[in-house]
């Protein structure tokens, strides 16, 4: 899986996005993220609302311009390239949106939505070839061709999400950011779309970054998982490792908080952390999670913990874990 270890497909180095608010306050949406995504991997990014996971996905694609840091695609920096070159680059880097209702222009028919990117990049010389390719894409994502002239509002959420997927695939991308692609869908439809995404990954050799708040979905689809809290990565490990051996107090609490469809765990305490996600505006130094953490000590409030590798490919950003490691 990681045979191509030398060059990640996507790499971010110290990626940072600050939003300046009225009155000079700064919102730290993404705060120094270092992430390597190798070809064929699916990296899950989890966190609660406001942790910056969606902003991260959009910043990597430069749909939002980063404040500082670098984004490397196949080893070359795409942070500074011109708008025109970036438009060309979008063929390789795509996105699937969360909301299948707002991500599709209500005034265009299905086939036109799927064909739009191909028209922008003039992939085919004539219209017929373009529409035929769009029809093939409909087959690929399991959307019957008879819907080609329908408008998106005539279709249900699952079918709309299939349109979004077909559109993202239309330029044969290498890397796709999936921004909560199933959270607006019903359970049975969600399963259909997840299966489709996994099939496509295998068939077309895609690499995903899967942004979601749903831990069971992320476990199902990802090979590697990054947990974000207030713009920072608190823990990163392979999917199995993270679920079997979570180390950061936040990850532990997050895993416990999922209500599992299993009544044997019915009476377990599952709300482990108190309080709410604090504001990402003008954050003070120190660990972002310190306020809600039961194990918080002096150092957590004074210093920022660094992301350290505690075991092979398992990174945690917590003084507690660092301390334990030294004691061992």
């Amino acid at each position: 899986m990681k045979n191509n270890k030398s060059t990640p497909l996507i790499e971010t180095i110290g990626l940072r996005k600050l939003f300046k608010l009225n009155g000079g306050a700064r919102l730290h949406a993404v705060d120094g993220i270092n992430l390597k995504i190798y070809p064929g991997e699916t990296v899950g990014v989890v966190g609660e609302s406001g942790c910056g996971k969606s902003t991260l996905g959009r910043t990597i694609l430069r749909l939002i311009e980063p404040t500082s840091g670098q984004i490397l695609y196949n080893g070359s920096d795409i942070t500074k390239i011109s708008a025109g070159k970036m438009r060309e680059m979008r063929k390789d880097l795509q996105i699937i949106f969360q909301d299948p209702y707002s991500s599709i222009d209500p005034r265009k028919s299905v086939i036109d939505i799927i064909a739009e990117y191909m028209f922008i990049h003039k992939v085919y010389k004539n219209k017929i070839d373009t529409y035929n390719r769009a029809a093939e894409l409909m087959d690929l994502v399991g959307l019957a061709r008879r819907y080609s002239s329908s408008y998106a509002h005539e279709l249900d959420g699952g079918r709309r999400q299939r349109i979004g997927i077909a559109r993202a695939l239309s330029l044969n991308p290498k890397f796709i950011v999936c921004d909560e692609p199933v959270s607006a869908l019903d359970v049975s439809i969600q399963a259909q779309i997840l299966n489709l995404l996994m099939d496509l990954e295998e068939e077309l050799g895609l690499t995903y970054m899967f942004v979601t708040h749903n831990l069971s979905v992320v476990k199902h689809i990802s090979t590697k998982i990054m947990v974000m809290y207030l713009g920072k990565c608190v823990e990163m490990a392979s999917s199995d490792e993270l679920f079997q051996n979570p180390m950061h107090p936040y990850t532990k609490a997050l895993l416990k908080a999922i209500p599992e469809p299993d009544i044997s765990k019915r009476d377990e305490e599952f709300a482990l952390i108190k309080g709410e996600v604090s504001s990402p505006i003008n954050v003070k130094p120190g660990c972002r999670f310190a306020k809600r953490c039961d194990f918080c000590f002096d150092r957590c409030i004074q210093e920022d913990p660094n992301l350290t590798e505690v075991s092979y490919e398992h990174f945690v950003s917590c003084f507690l874990v660092e301390k334990n490691k030294v004691e061992k």
């Binding site: 060309e88 996105i95 949106f97 969360q98």
Partner: peptide, 17 residues
């Protein structure tokens, strides 16, 4: 603000388009 405008940008559409 809507996603479909962002989707068009993600597809490489120019501002004029």
């Amino acid at each position: 603000e809507l996603d479909y405008v962002e989707a068009a940008r993600a597809g490489g559409a120019s501002s004029a388009r």
